[in-house]
């Protein structure tokens, strides 16, 4: 039981950044905008949060700056894809390419002179986990003790975002914009404004996921700290069939793969480390294949019908 609890603890911790970014990307994609910039936005979020905390010693400020930067990058994506009707795939890829390069540039420039202007290898304040004693007594549930505030926020946001999407009026408007923008427009919903709004909100949550990496999960800055997590998030959105209620299972699955990987490495297995490190990526492909196959079999369509298409009234 102790072993299980400890695996679950790591799983939840590893899953936090993935889950929060997944919620963000679900909201964005529900409006019909595919944002492939997740990896770049997470990197910029991780970098800006760490740099801010390093200089100001304020974790709150670190999160706020990350959220702001994430919102700005997502705003750029929204502008390019809705106002300028650029290809959503290529625009998202550009955000990722730019975010990867710019975070690496800033990481070599924003540091103190004593560290050769680099941020790599520095320490800053990190989020301190709560020790919830009352929960620590309950078997298995005790995995939820000793987690940080962002993790708790995630587990509050999950049901909230589900409720918002499926049980409220603005949630219905959002879904209708992603499903059928023409009809939504005819109903008087401002398609462009909706897409801008949820792309920006999504970008903020994605950056928050990145900030959680550099302030809690793997404290500090290193180039490509995300290691492909941004792309796994995009796979998780497909896995959850664009429903936040299911997002948690995917994030736990990938957190679990991470936990197993750590455990095996620590136990000194004969499997070379490189093959263990392939697990999350192979896992993503397997999950994608299984999900796509299952969706086709059960004739369920999870993706918003208008996902990836630009909308323009004049075109009709």
């Amino acid at each position: 039981m102790d072993f299980l609890t400890s695996v679950l603890t790591i799983t939840i911790r590893a899953g936090t950044s993935l889950t929060i970014a997944t919620i963000g990307e679900i909201l964005t994609e529900r409006s019909g905008i595919l944002n492939l910039g997740v990896e770049g936005i997470m990197l910029m979020g991780a970098l800006s949060a760490f740099a801010t905390v390093f200089y100001t010693h304020s974790i709150v400020l670190g999160f706020l700056v990350a959220i702001g930067i994430g919102g700005l990058l997502a705003l750029l994506h929204a502008f390019l894809t809705t106002t300028m009707r650029a290809n959503q795939v290529v625009s998202g890829l550009s955000i990722t390419l730019f975010g990867t390069g710019f975070s690496s540039f800033l990481g070599q420039r924003l540091g103190p002179a004593t560290n050769n202007f680099r941020l790599v290898g520095l320490r800053a304040e990190r989020i301190v986990p709560f020790d919830l004693e009352w929960i620590g007594q309950v078997p298995l549930l005790s995995a939820f003790s000793n987690q940080d505030i962002i993790t708790y926020i995630v587990y509050i946001l999950l049901p909230l975002s589900w409720f918002f999407l499926y049980k409220t009026r603005p949630g219905l408007w959002l879904r209708s914009v992603g499903e059928d923008p023409q009809t939504a427009d005819a109903m008087g919903i401002d398609v462009i404004k909706t897409r801008y709004f949820y792309t920006v909100i999504g970008g903020m949550l994605i950056a928050l996921g990145g900030a959680h990496l550099s302030l809690s999960y793997t404290p500090g800055w290193s180039e490509n700290i995300t290691g492909g997590r941004g792309w796994i998030v995009i796979a998780l959105v497909i896995f959850s069939m664009w429903n936040p209620a299911r997002a948690v299972w995917g994030a736990l699955l990938f957190g679990g793969i991470n936990a197993v990987q750590f455990r095996l490495q620590a136990s000194g297995t004969s499997i070379p480390a490189n093959f263990l490190n392939m697990l999350p990526y192979v896992g993503t492909i397997v999950v994608l294949v299984v999900m796509t196959w299952w969706e086709a079999l059960s004739k369920k369509v999870g993706a918003p019908a208008a996902l990836g298409t630009s909308y323009m009234r004049e075109d009709k």
């Binding site: 995009i234 990526y281 993503t284 994608l288």
Partner: peptide, 12 residues
């Protein structure tokens, strides 16, 4: 199977 190529190529 119509599996999303963006993710598969990237993961590979």
């Amino acid at each position: 199977l119509k599996v999303d190529e963006t993710l598969v190529t990237l993961m590979m």
